[in-house]
């Protein structure tokens, strides 16, 4: 059993876990976390599959995963901004409902 194979398997488990969680969990923060775990799984899979097992690692997939990580962070930041604004809007609605009562 080789290192690449171990991590490729781990990546598959992480992908499954991420997809499952994003489907069943209701809290938005947790869904966003699950997407991040899904992403990490895909990135690990990418590198583990591309590596030949000996010698220097292939730089091309590393550059791609680097891009992928940056995209993931941007997406997470966007998601968190949305979550905050949803929360603010909910709070405002709750206050309005309280005043009406």
């Amino acid at each position: 059993m080789s290192t690449d194979l171990i991590y490729a398997t781990t990546a598959v488990v992480l992908i499954g876990l991420g997809l499952y969680t994003v489907l069943i969990r209701r809290h938005l923060v947790r869904k966003l976390m699950a997407v991040n775990i899904l992403g990490s799984g895909v990135f690990v899979l990418f590198i583990a599959l591309a590596s030949s097992g000996e010698g220097d690692a292939d730089p091309v997939p590393q550059a791609m995963v680097l891009t992928g990580i940056v995209v993931a962070v941007s997406a997470t930041a966007l998601g968190l901004v949305l979550i905050r604004r949803i929360d603010e809007a909910d709070l405002k609605n709750a206050e309005l409902a309280g005043e009406e009562r």
Partner: peptide, 19 residues
């Protein structure tokens, strides 16, 4: 472990740190 040392640095800084 997968000999992607650049990614290790980026992951600590961005993946774990900023996120």
């Amino acid at each position: 472990r997968l000999r992607a040392f650049d990614l290790a640095l980026v992951e600590v800084a961005i993946g774990a740190g900023i996120t």
